[in-house]
Nucleic acid binder design. Structure first.
Lengths: 226, 226
DNA sequence: CGAGAACCGTAACGTACGGTACGGACCTCT
DNA sequence: AGAGGTCCGTACCGTACGTTACGGTTCTCG
């Protein structure tokens, strides 16, 4: 998984970035059914330019995924002054951010396209990686790489305990995300308000700390079983 | 959500069922790119019969989803003799079954098709419900309706405590499923062995009981933080 | 000012696919 | 045996879409 899926040269003209934004907007408001004609019309550019810049349709999609990924990357979560409260705060902020991302129309549309294309079975040998792999590298795995240092720091500080960071991380995102992503992808209108996201993030974090905490000052039990 | 999405008349000829099984096989081994020609060839039937039996392409897909759903429906989980061990056992059995379903190639392929089609934005007014809605009704919500009585019985027996059954249920499936489904849908080759499924189910169940249990005989803590 | 490049809008081409029509084989019932 | 129905295999039609080609316009640079 050390392939260069998560890096990009960012050699993109302003114009090209505008085109990719148009693709994103089109994906969001019109679903995965995305034609080159529609993109050209929406972006007010010629199809010739589209093919000149991105090669073919798959190249355009790939560039769009990478472009969105480059916009989502948020700052790391600091692990200075790690007491129980700071850890809880970091986890909650992470959960809020992640829930906001996966429930955003852009993320949903992009995942839809990647999933639809990811089923194309027999991939020709020379062909580049599927969109699904790019989504995983920039989404799920990038997220993990960002949060795991926080968990490790929490363990070193004696606030939480676990054997495998990966397992702990997966339990956390399970508690945070639950069935949100699959339901949204299947078209469930599950509009999460910012307040719900905030409370879900806090509930999941407290549940996680109940499971993996060492018993340092934690919120009382009644708030967990919402 | 009381729409007749989860019932079907099952007025299907043996021949038609064979056709739908061919569709499923084709979806699994060839991904979502499914053409009527390929189905006819694979099922050794004429396209004319396809259209006669299922109306159009969407009808064929819908019938396929319903057909698969009708095959997956498992028996209810008995809630007789409910002590802590029996509850734990029921939850583990449920988790094993569900993990097996969502990680099966058939389920993945079907979800892929439903998700791809579910993005088709502007649905014509007269048109039937999307495949995504059918998948949700027969998958996620049917599962919930099947497990919630178990949870409620556990609560009535004083073994677990929660305010909202739905919230407790969602926490449970979050702990069980974690990121498995989205990763598989995006093409991650995450081949779960039966042994892993079994241990994941036990871990998730014990975590759930740690969060929602009332303190009755539960497995010791060390086994939870695997 | 003039040559060249970049780009927009549109037209054209080839293919793939959803949907329909037709001929022939088999099976059933009388 | 013959009529009617069901179904398979194949050919066919219309359209949509990816991709390419071309004329016209604007911008850049000498």
């Amino acid at each position: 998984m050390a392939s260069p899926l998560d890096i990009q040269d960012d050699t993109l003209t302003e114009r090209q970035q505008a085109v990719l934004d148009a693709v994103l907007a089109l994906m969001v408001e019109q679903g995965g059914e995305l034609t080159m004609n529609a993109v050209a019309r929406r972006a007010s550019c010629s199809k010739e330019s589209l093919y000149k810049w991105f090669g073919d349709r798959e190249g355009l999609l790939t560039a769009t995924v990478r472009w969105q990924a480059s916009k989502v990357r948020a700052g790391n979560y600091d692990r200075t002054r790690l007491d129980a409260l700071a850890l809880r705060d970091s986890l909650i902020r992470f959960a809020v951010n992640w829930l906001g991302v996966i429930s955003s129309p852009t993320s949903i549309a992009l995942n839809r396209v990647a999933i639809a294309q990811s089923g194309g079975g027999a991939r020709t040998p020379g062909e580049g990686a599927s969109l699904g792999a790019i989504m995983l590298a920039n989404g799920r795995f990038a997220i993990g790489a960002r949060l795991k240092p926080v968990l490790d720091a929490g363990r070193e500080a004696g606030l939480i305990v676990f054997d495998d960071t990966e397992t702990a991380f997966r339990s956390f995102i399970g508690l945070v995300g639950r069935d949100v992503q699959i339901r949204l992808l299947l078209g469930d209108t599950l509009n999460l308000t910012p307040a719900e996201i905030e409370s879900d993030a806090a509930r999941a974090t407290d549940q996680f700390l109940t499971l993996y905490g060492t018993g340092n000052p934690l919120p009382e039990r009644s708030k967990i079983n919402a």
